[in-house]
Design a protein around this nucleic acid. Structure first.
Length: 219
DNA sequence: AACTCGGGGCA
DNA sequence: TGCCCAGAGTT
């Protein structure tokens, strides 16, 4: 298992590789961040950005999303996978925002996850990015990277990964850490064809060393 | 813990 | 063509 010192070294190296990773997810308000994060389930960020560009021109408030028929909203996000459920969830979510939260995006995890389509990952992203509340969102990238490096065990649950990250990472870096791991996982420590050659973390990476012994890492 | 939703991107 | 992708809800 990685020591805290080694883990801090990992974060520094990732920061060097993707210095502006944390600037990527900037949204003008919590509501847009919530919608964008909800749309991002099981599809790439580039695709979401393509859709939200027009979407946020047309829909500004929860009321706007409820002012059109479900079919119209579904068509507006049709190029994203799972669009039927996502559109349905967005309208149900907007209705709940209006009736129970005065049209505002709530700030606690319990309230956020009570919204349709919002799970722990989405809630953590909104809390940390929109409101500056320390939280670490664990998605497939974060899970894969932390397990490959050896910070977490392969059998760990998503919640256990999150707990380990919170324990080993300085609190003031929590929200930044999420985006560092996302970028590192998305562009370098990829699910397929990880760039283990030319990886600054190869020496201390559990999976990397295993691959090295097996001769799987090409020059 | 496994299954399902799903169009677009990429090999 | 076939496979995978910034997850969440249901069983």
């Amino acid at each position: 298992m990685l020591t805290i010192k080694q883990w801090e070294h990992c974060l520094e190296e990732m920061d060097n590789m993707f210095p502006d990773a944390h600037c990527e997810l900037v949204h003008s308000n919590p509501f847009e961040l919530l919608i964008a994060t909800l749309l991002s389930a099981q599809c790439t960020d580039q695709l979401v950005n393509k859709v939200t560009k027009d979407l946020f021109q047309k829909y500004k408030t929860p009321e706007d999303y409820l002012s059109v028929p479900l079919e119209e909203l579904q068509q507006d996000i049709r190029s994203i996978g799972l669009y039927r459920n996502k559109a349905k969830n967005i309208q149900k979510l907007c209705e709940k925002l209006i009736t129970e939260f005065n049209g505002e995006v709530p700030k606690t995890r319990e309230e956020l996850t009570s919204l349709p389509g919002v799970g722990r990952k989405t809630a953590n992203v909104v809390m940390s990015v929109a409101f500056g509340i320390p939280a670490i969102a664990v998605d497939t990238h974060v899970e894969r990277v932390t397990k490959r490096l050896g910070l977490c065990r392969w059998k760990d649950s998503v919640l256990e990964v999150e707990e380990t990250l919170m324990k080993k990472t300085p609190k003031e870096r929590w929200s930044k850490t999420h985006h560092q791991l996302i970028f590192f996982g998305r562009y370098h420590c990829k699910a397929q064809n990880p760039q283990c050659h030319q990886c600054p973390l190869l020496d201390l990476c559990r999976e990397g060393q295993k691959r090295l012994k097996k001769g799987l890492i090409k020059q």
